[in-house]
Design a protein around this nucleic acid. Structure first.
Lengths: 176, 176
DNA sequence: GGTCCATGTTACCGACGAGTAAGATTACTC
DNA sequence: GAGTAATCTTACTCGTCGGTAACATGGACC
């Protein structure tokens, strides 16, 4: 049910997705949406929150703390790509909204971004590079979803190659 | 005059920026906007087009064809950062809209993105990496604008460091 | 000074869509 | 099977905003 809303939001954006359309797509009637979520903002927030939580959970459980840095990063990247692949609506929304400074979602979203940035900053010891790397991942994921065909591992390797020089030399992973 | 529109669009997004508000901010009346631009879409398109053209021009004229690859890249990055710094509204709009697949702007925007991607692909001989690199630049620029303080050259160097391994060994530039 | 075009303004229309009130329908209890 | 509570729908209100029609103003030219 949130899923229908997510698809509508992802496909048309917040404003062009009407509550009537969402209700119809979800197979229920509009007042039900209001009953459950209070308002359109509420519905959107619920969806964004769920998506964000799902992504974070998926990345966190891939990140086994005891492994060396390069392996942890690789696992995180794969988790991220898998999420983007399997929940393309959620990923689209998160990506699109992650720099929309207006609205009460800003708090939620910038918090998510912040957490990812912190994970990466901790890994790289370089805040600027962490943000650049995050952007590389996002952009690459978008491109990959629009032009599928390459296996996920290969995409992940592109990112790993970018990350290698920034990892402490001791943490480097030899591939191939 | 387009400037007022741009600021409104950048601050509130396309839908929340009302024509009345834009007209007032521009110091003219609403029918004048319609006289010049035909419609809200038209106004938006005009602004996006102008911004895109300005960015491309600025990057292109920094790109002296005869220089080695690393220098050309460096010049392009600086031009890009300068544009983002000086036309933050334009940059915000371009960045936000560059993955909004809906609307007639899609053509314009994906064309711009395509051209940048092609320039980078030509440089790196690797399409996936080119998109990742573009995303890194965008994300880093956003972060930099939100957290100023570091000099532009330092930001550019972060990107250069990412690019180095992907440039042909012959093209590498020794820094510092 | 009258005519006319350019440039602008005020005041309105109509559509669309968020949100709601009041009624229908089902399910559940005694 | 009557009463009733929960669940869901139809049908409406109302504000907002894109777009426009009709009306002002002011200069140019004769």
């Amino acid at each position: 049910m949130l899923e229908a809303a997510g698809q509508a939001f992802a496909a048309h954006g917040f404003h062009e997705a009407s509550m009537d359309a969402i209700a119809q797509a979800a197979g229920i009637s509009k007042p039900m949406l209001y009953n459950y979520f209070g308002s359109k903002q509420g519905l959107y927030a619920a969806y964004v929150e769920r998506s964000g939580r799902a992504l974070m959970t998926s990345m966190r459980e891939a990140d086994s703390r005891s492994a060396p840095a390069a392996q942890r990063l690789h696992a995180g990247i794969l988790a991220f790509l898998t999420y983007a692949e399997e929940h393309s609506s959620g990923w689209t929304i998160l990506h699109r909204e992650s720099f929309a400074q207006g609205g009460p979602l800003a708090a939620e979203l910038s918090d998510l971004r912040e957490r990812v940035a912190q994970m990466l900053t901790a890994l790289f010891n370089d805040e600027a590079f962490a943000h650049a790397f995050a952007g590389a991942g996002e952009s690459l994921a978008s491109w990959w979803l629009a032009h599928p065909g390459q296996p996920k591992e290969q995409i992940a390797n592109v990112l790993m190659d970018i990350a290698q020089p920034a990892l402490g030399p001791a943490d480097r992973l030899v591939r191939r």
